[in-house]
Simulated scan of single mutants.
Amino acid sequence: MEIDARGLSCPQPVIETKKAIDKKHTQLTVLVDNVAAKENVSRFATAMKYSIQAEETDYGWKLYLEKR
């Protein structure tokens, strides 16, 4: 599942990620366009026992989350 959180200010990217995790998605891609969103989504995903890989893109970052 892909979540496009570009243009959203915190805590909205984390809220959108939480909604997907609550639906039991085990693999997610989250698109963010600012450092605060990248760090907050990564911190939340880690707390929820997801591994994270971040890839820098032209618009910000693509975060790959996978349930451990």
Results as ranks from 00 to 15, higher is better:
Ile3Met: 05
Ala54Pro: 05
Val14Arg: 03
Met1His: 10
Thr26Asn: 10
Asp33Thr: 03
Lys19Tyr: 01
Lys19Ile: 05
Glu66Pro: 08
Pro13Phe: 04
Leu8Cys: 13
Ile21Arg: 04
Glu2Ser: 07
Asp58Asn: 12
Val35Leu: 11
Thr57Arg: 04
Ala37Pro: 07
Asp4His: 00
Ala37Leu: 07
Ile52Lys: 12
Tyr64Cys: 11
Gln12His: 12
Lys49Glu: 11
Ala5Ile: 01
Lys38Asn: 06
Val41Phe: 05
Ser42Leu: 06
Trp61Gln: 11
Leu8Met: 11
Tyr64Met: 14
Val30Ile: 04
Arg6Ile: 02
Gln12Met: 11
Arg43Ile: 08
Val32Ser: 06
Val41Gly: 00
Asn40Arg: 15
Leu8Thr: 08
Phe44Thr: 09
Phe44Arg: 02
Val41Met: 05
Pro13Thr: 02
Asn40Gln: 14
Met48Ile: 01
Leu65Lys: 06
Gln53Met: 15
Val30Phe: 07
Ile15Cys: 08
Ile3Gly: 02
Val30Lys: 00
Leu65Ile: 08
Ala54Asp: 13
Ser51Tyr: 14
Asn40Cys: 13
Val32Met: 03
Arg68Val: 15
Ser42His: 07
Tyr50Val: 02
Thr29Ser: 09
Ala36Ser: 14
Lys23Asn: 12
Pro13Gln: 03
Tyr59His: 14
Ala36Asp: 13
